[in-house]
Design a protein around this nucleic acid. Sequence first.
DNA 1: CTAGTCACTTTTTTT
DNA 2: AAGTGACTAG
Length: 715
Amino acid sequence: MIDFKKELNSAQYEAATHPQGPVLVIAGAGSGKTRTIVYRLAWLVEQGIAPDSILLMTFTRKAAQEMLMRAETILGRSLHGTSGGTFHSFAYSVLRQNALTAGYPNGMTLMDRGDCEDIIRDVRTELGHGKKDRSFPKKNTLLDIITKSRNKELPIDQVLSTEAFHLTCYASEIEEIAVGYESYKRQHSLLDYDDLLFLFEKLMRENDDIREQLRTRYRFIMVDEYQDTNLVQARIVRLLAGRNGNVMAVGDDAQSIYAFRGADVTNILKFPEIFEDVKVVRLEQNYRSTQPVLDLTNSILDGAETKFDKKLFTERSGGSLPKLLIPLSDYTQSSRVVDKVIELQKKYGPGGVAILFRAGYQSYGLEVALKRIGIEYRKYGGLKFNEAAHIKDVLAFMRLVTNPADIISWQRSLGHIKGVGPKTAKRIADAVISGNKSAVDKFCKKYQLLSDLLRDLDGLRNKNSSPSTALEVLLPLYTPILVAEYPDDYPRRQAGLEQLSQIASNYDTMETFLADLCLDPEPVANDGNEPEEALTLSTVHSAKGLEWNAVILIDLVEDRFPSRKSMQKPAEFEEERRLLYVACTRACDELYMSAPASVSRQNTDFRDPAIPSPFIRELNEELYEQWQEAYSGGMAKKKRFPAKTKPKVDSPLSATSESESSPKKKPTSPTKLGFCRHKIFGRGKIVEHISPNKYRVNFPGFGLKVIVEDYIEML
DNA sequence: CTAGTCACTTTTTTT
DNA sequence: AAGTGACTAG
């Protein structure tokens, strides 16, 4: 028997042992959210609930597996049968079991981002939109707009006016492309990520029997990271659980960082209204971070608007101030960070340290430095393993085994044949699909590779082959292509293909293999064998929910964090703030923030001076120590000049400690300066009050300006 | 219709 | 520096 009272604090206990009906758990960063879910699982099972009537939705499959494993450990028994995974993977599995009812009798093929873009490109050229028009949006942008419109469930023109005003003149063309995209997918049994959710919802809505079957099976539902669900996902939860079902939603509105893909915080805010008799539990004690780290993270949030006000506190005493490092450039940043990593790993072990960044490419320089010195690392986020061209090539072959209608894969596969482009590929594919034997024969005579491919595909189709056998057959076919197309680095790519075979060996069916690669892609391997415990490199998004003893944040400079794009819209700017909050709250003991004094422009030798991120500039200097790289090398602690610090009255430190006890924050708090309008620069965020009558304002697209009070209008 | 050349912009984040 | 799309010769 587990002593839940002893293992959990009172709020956690209340959540974990909630007997019936909906619960909303507002869980601040580091407040033992995972622990609560794990104990909830254990408690349910101890109450005699069958493990297979529990459904656990998380943001990655890995997170679900880990929670289940931990629950098994404390229970001392297997949780076999419990369903856990992402909304997308769950939706896919249900759809696949009901493929016929869902309207996909011939199965369905999942597409990744690149596949979707390919379709958009084809649809666009087919429609002839934006021909010769250089400012017509690119496929990437088009897909962004289309998925955003679907995820937010808003018409295209409305998305355009809020997200990309300069493209509003193309609304009707984009609309047409969106329609063409939908019918293309439908025609070829292709599904994108959004389709999974919408089709799943539709399936449940339109088929009472399926819905009831799911409801009877899944009597206890838990949804992690609820603040990052979008509208369909919320409706899916509602459909699965009913109005008073046993659903537990766990989340933190301060950590919502997926609005860009349609996540809607109102889901978590409105949860108590959508469900009946909702029990709301708040987890406010932070077990992760030391006080100085918590002070800094609380202060980042000071300027943010959060609806569920939480007062995070910790009992962890001691700990050192977070440190702001100012290397001379992003180049030297890599070396300084490597030094730091060595030092920190001695203290916390190889797995105790993580380096976080805003975008995948920001770690490239660092990765070179780490490899040179021989520090092993694992990288999460950024480019995925299965996004590499050669992997996609082979996967296209494999997809043709299961879905003959997959034109995208036909084009990709046949494109390797000399003299065959998209058009010919489509003609060949049409001939094959429609069973036009004489035409196929003609093409086969002309192109040796085609007849080889068709022969192999047929062999695999007839035997209903496993992914491993498919690869055994297809790789010999592909290897010559690989060598021909990548003469300089095919050995490296070949290693990737071996890794693919490795992964394939864990799967019995082609469908699950292909789907899993799409739904839960492996991070790209840096070098074959990976150690269990290693330094983590990760985007902030992929670091969500994790923690390390020491966290180093790099590239905290204007235009990189927050990303330049987010400066245009206050909502996105605020999301970047929460993103930084998520990043900093990953640290248990030590937090380092690096803001190089100059950054090189996209891998060239040009270096631009860089300004620390506005979020850093907002912070009171007493919350961190500043270390600057000397021209002669080495880091020197920078003394604070009293003259340079902001007047004591404005100090967020005093504001922070006070705002926690007093509910109303003072309007003069520097992080609450808000927004203003300027005749020329437009709307901007006030970053700093420069006495007596000036403000430092951040104008999207123009950057930081110091403006005299009289020239701005307060908003 | 393909394949090669050229000029232009672009760099978030993820299921 | 890379990827995209326009343009063009065969």
